[in-house]
Design a protein around this nucleic acid. Sequence first.
DNA 1: CCGTGTTGTTCCAACGTTGTAACCGTCGTG
DNA 2: CACGACGGTTACAACGTTGGAACAACACGG
Lengths: 347, 347
Amino acid sequence: MGAVTLKDVAERAGVSIKTVSNVVRNAPRVSDATRVRVLEAVGELGYRPNASARRLRTGRSGLIALAVPDLTTPYFAELAHHVAREASGRGFTVLIEETRGDAREELRLATGVGASLLDGVILSPLRVSPADLAPVADEFPLVLLGERSYGGEQVVADHVLIDNVAAAREVTAHLASLGRTRIGAIGVDEQGSATSRQRLTGFQQALYEAGLRYDPRLAAQVGEFDRPNGLAAMRTLLQLPGGVRPDAVFCFSDMLAVGAQRALHEAGLDIPGDVAVAGVDGSAEGLYSTPSLTSVVPDQASIAAMAVSCLATRIGSEDPLPYEVRTAPHRLAVRESTDGVRRPLPS
Amino acid sequence: MGAVTLKDVAERAGVSIKTVSNVVRNAPRVSDATRVRVLEAVGELGYRPNASARRLRTGRSGLIALAVPDLTTPYFAELAHHVAREASGRGFTVLIEETRGDAREELRLATGVGASLLDGVILSPLRVSPADLAPVADEFPLVLLGERSYGGEQVVADHVLIDNVAAAREVTAHLASLGRTRIGAIGVDEQGSATSRQRLTGFQQALYEAGLRYDPRLAAQVGEFDRPNGLAAMRTLLQLPGGVRPDAVFCFSDMLAVGAQRALHEAGLDIPGDVAVAGVDGSAEGLYSTPSLTSVVPDQASIAAMAVSCLATRIGSEDPLPYEVRTAPHRLAVRESTDGVRRPLPS
DNA sequence: CCGTGTTGTTCCAACGTTGTAACCGTCGTG
DNA sequence: CACGACGGTTACAACGTTGGAACAACACGG
């Protein structure tokens, strides 16, 4: 590993180590003549600054991490896309870590490797609670994506989120406006994530506003928001006794919706003829599914921009800043799975 | 950022810095009494070793990176999954980087940040050529995923790949065995990736073996293997003059196939009644699509295991090792999009 | 001709860690 | 009882970098 160091460059250029350091950092107080000479040497030797040493000395590495529960969920993969682009515009490099919904993994980046290697972390928490994060947040730049946990709890870090209650209300209202009266929900998890609870709240609000009753039998409990759970939940809803089969389902994620669509396909039912399906995430997979999936599309570019901007501010400032909570916009994309109108996708 | 250091722990435990270091590294030559005392101090102060300093001193960080072109492609997201699991079993932490198919990005991890921060890189190259990598590979542990570039070129790093020619031949033979005679291909890119060229070769071989002619009009050129390109290519194939519409298409990736299915859906054609569709990747998206997608399923667990094992060996050894090329198994998963048999997915 | 400032460069120390070598007991053995 | 061996601990230096202070060279105004 005979890496080229400042010392090698300095010898080659006939100047001191510090001068080379000044050149590569674009510090002032270097004459043009020396600068040119040093840069030549840098080029010839292929010098690359050692990030570990730099980080050790300055406390800055230019690296931030994005930690998400699961990369195979398109929502998170697409989010990673946006965050990487946004961060590189600000001179940060993004490393992505998959936490697999493990609380220890979620904390690890902010405490272990992270704190000594990274300038900050954007975390999409699944299991970890504000209490776990409290001791960390003051010392290490951290931005959380998604819901604050249940109302009463303290805000312990910057948050970027969408208005989940409103989003769920809009999509449910859309289903009701189509004349559906037995609207089910897939993704309820009352003990679980704040996201799920908020979407349930919005769902119920919209039902009441439409003059419909909330029927708990049509609300399917689910652990993770993935395809197999959507499939299983829809199968269950289709086998309810007493002819209470739903004529529409609001799935709390696109993956649940994809699973639900699969269950309907297997049962030989028509979407949206027999059952309308809607999701949340605005994933490309939903757009291309058959039929294409009506979904709430969070503005991921905004989410990423807000998160990176919060993080950059926090990294840049020495003093503790007050925690911010920022809400990103979303929109409802109505597609075939609810209105049945066949539209060609734009090329 | 008042991080706890070895010094703090040493003072607390009443021993020297070096002894603490010995304890946390599980080095021998520490009495049980001191070990206990030190570990108590570590726990009370919440000491975490500084990865930058450790890396600077030892040249090891325990971090490896996986660089893939695009995380929104399920194949890569799922691969990241497997690599992370495999690596954590060996005590490595995996950071994932998206290169967006940019050659400079692809090299960056292996040259810039990477070389000074990471112990090694697993790279799934899209643009970068062996020649670009040659100067790097000797000095920095690097494993490439996917094809070697065109025949003649030298092997410059470890490779893990599947037998693309065989895979393409199998899936094409399957289509032929269903009695299809006008079998198209989507994903041809003759200037482009070795992967594409190899799949075309296998495709042509299978046609000849089945007694069919290769019709270039049914071979759709495509840049990236994504959904929009699959959609566009299928639309083109459906509008060929002279009634040469294909009765089956082999798509060189699942995403192309999903796009193709969408085009067929929009055209009101039945899958597989009018046109059978098959892909490569074995993605969950294909499994859940309607109809479920016949696909070549590379054994990603094996790929990940081989890649991590190669990399670990290379990291562990000081001397340059000969470059290895390892082939991972694959299998053909026949599903509704070719045989039309409706099977419920297992829960 | 001497201070004073400006500009470019060098020297030194430090970031937190670990490898090497040296040190100090204590024990077993001749 | 002296000696070596060995277990346990410590001091020191170094990894590559950068902030700060020190320093040299030079121009300028008094």
